[in-house]
Design a protein around this nucleic acid. Sequence first.
DNA 1: GAGCACTGC
Length: 891
Amino acid sequence: MGRDKSRKRAQSSSDESLDSEEEARLRDLRERDEFADRLRKRDEDKTRKVLESSSSRKAYEEAAKRLKLEIEDREKILPQLRVQSRRKYLEKRKDDKVAELEADILDDEYLFEEKILTDRERKEREYKKQLLTIAKEHEKARELERVQRYHMPQDVKKGETEEYVEVDERERQPNSEQKKWESEQLASAMFQFGAKDAKIKDEYDLLLDDQIEFIQALTMEGSKSKDKKPEITETEKHKMDIEETKKSLPVYPFREDLIAAIQEHQILIIEGETGSGKTTQIPQYLYEAGFTKDNKKIGCTQPRRVAAMSVAARVAQEMGVKLGNEVGYSIRFEDCTSERTILKYMTDGTLHREFLSEPDLASYSVMIIDEAHERTLHTDILFGLVKDIARFRPELKLLISSATLDAEKFSQFFDDAPIFRIPGRRFPVDIYYTKAPEADYIDACVVSVLQIHATQPLGDILVFLTGQDEIETCQEVLQDRVKRLGSKLKELVILPVYANLPSDMQAKIFEPTPPNARKVILATNIAETSLTIDNIIYVIDPGFAKQNNFSSRTGMESLMVVPISKASANQRAGRAGRTAPGKCFRLYTAWAYKHELEDNTIPEIQRINLGNAVLMLKALGINDLIHFDFLDPPPHETLVLALEQLYALGALNHHGELTKLGRRMAEFPVDPMMAKMILASEKYKCSEEIVTIAAMLSVNSAIFYRPKDKIIHADTARKNFNHIHGDHLSLLQVYNQWAETDFSVQWCYENFIQYRSMKRARDVREQLVGLMQRVEIDMVSSLPETIPIRKAITAGYFYHVARLSKGGNYKTIKHNQTVMIHPNSSLFEELPRWVLYHELVFTTKEYMRQVIEIESKWLLEVAPHYYKAKELEDSTNKKMPKTAGRSTMTV
DNA sequence: GAGCACTGC
């Protein structure tokens, strides 16, 4: 309705300007395609090199330095520089050689640990190790020397520019914290403890108050017999020859049939439970069957980074090659592949990004979408994209791999593709329900844990809770109860685990349970799919989880506790049957399971803001998104909102086509508004600051640490960073101060800042800086001036503006919705007239999180097409326009 | 005067 009116307005506007408008549109499209061509060419050059991103950045820095030199007095500095560069070269060469040696030894041990070595081989390995020790000791000695020299600057010749940096070089490595966490995950995925003897010990006859009555309803069938212990323990498996291990996997007998089916059909749905070996084996079978001829690759996507890495490592080991050569993986911040790579594991998001540079997947002969049943946003979009490609690339094979239940649905979506079933390897799990609903499930969890501990044979317990808060409460209550019961019970080790928990504390859940004790792990949904803990025999499932929902009507996110789905409940129960037969206690009735739980969790694509996804699809040339082939289409309003926003940001023209600006925005793995902000920093000459703010906003409010016992200290520390103009600038101060301390851990600790989040912000920042260079933006700083920074933010987020109304409330300009400044904000007590917010969240009230003060006239400056001067008049006597001015647009 | 499930680019 409103849109029609505005369209008419556009039509009636002067006809002569139409021609020039059309011309501008065509010119923009031309420029957009030229830009895309430039990117493609650059990418092609890049892929020829084995080492890419970091080396190209170094090359860039070198070039910049060289340029600077031209201005300075070349004659004077050159001889000195020559000496210096020679020294640096030798230094670097030594470092490289040491690293190479170290990698060599690791590889050697990794690949051939089970093999019996000849005397010569053993000696060689010993020699290498010795060499490495010596090299390291030498380095240590030098390190000491360096520190001493630092205190004697008079030793340095005047004019010599040698740097004496004391920073721990390992800390300076990008992603080191991430890597630490991942390597821990990796280790836990690869080395498994043998199944512990779960002998029935003498049972306690202990009466607990208010026991919960459970009734056993059914047993989730396993493929293994109930009474038998696993016939192959993990340690034995390690000793087995790799070939034999491969043959023992459930998928092995299907090898020939599977290859035949793939040869016959273009698309195949593979239904198989975890533990069938499909993820590691199928790509190898395909390789052996010749699918990688003609320089083609086999790709396999995973929803998680750790999975992509660990599976690739396992397959490389099985094939006896070095990881990163024939078998590699590619995840954000880390590309471990080379031109030789033929089996490539990657995260679904990485493949999604790869589409931008290779929209037809030309370098792949087979693409496997693994864990499709998890229905991540990226997987869902990939479905539509690969289905489309399969139509014009008949030689491309597609394998969609999923757990049970969903296979039929996938088959229907992919034009009735045949389903290939592979059995899994799992133990049966007895399922128990409560007789009556439980009112307080935390209390019910505590009681159940004690009940199991008192009456059931040894074996660890896994409890699913919804969040950190619940976990902490439960932990306290449980500890208290155990203390009161005293020595009547065996030892109970209580361990929490959730994503925001520091990694060293997370790692504790993987430590073996002490003898004669029982471990209780209180976990969030992280233990449902992301972490796999061995030796869990009992699972307690209250049936709830926190879920994020996005409302396109209000543009608001809300994190709410909701009942889980049947699929999720079964996934949780399955966690009890990994190493031996297990039991799952559901704290709800069988009736509730049957009638109240949905079959499947609502897929992500229907629950979140699709701004970035829509921009990506547009960048891939998919113009008609409303009719895009989604497995489950997102709500119509969400798509419309995303398109409207992209239009308002100038990423789409009035024909709904991608503009040059939009093409540049699509390069950034961030929301469109943030991408626009980053690009606007070019104009306002504050790219250094904006990219920091973008990185800090991306780590999602996990920066300030508030331990329960030191809340006052933490809050005071936080207030020290507050900036009078708002939270974005506070975040900037946090980052810059941290950077000044050379990214110190100690500093974070002293200021109640989460080191892990800061590291992540630093990684994100580095990636964004790389991308900015890619889209041809210079890095410049505007400090101490902050107005340009706030203007650049406004250029991206002019959609997110609210004004103080008479009642002391804020009203959003867009929806005239009442919202409040979040109490954590530095502007909470300031109440400026005009504010810009980063996000709207509904918790107990409608809150704006991350707020800055702006001036209304900036809105006219950065978005003249979106705001009219009249509606921004500040005088409160004047009538406010009912709706915000909206420009024309056809979706 | 509030409160952050989990992934991923």
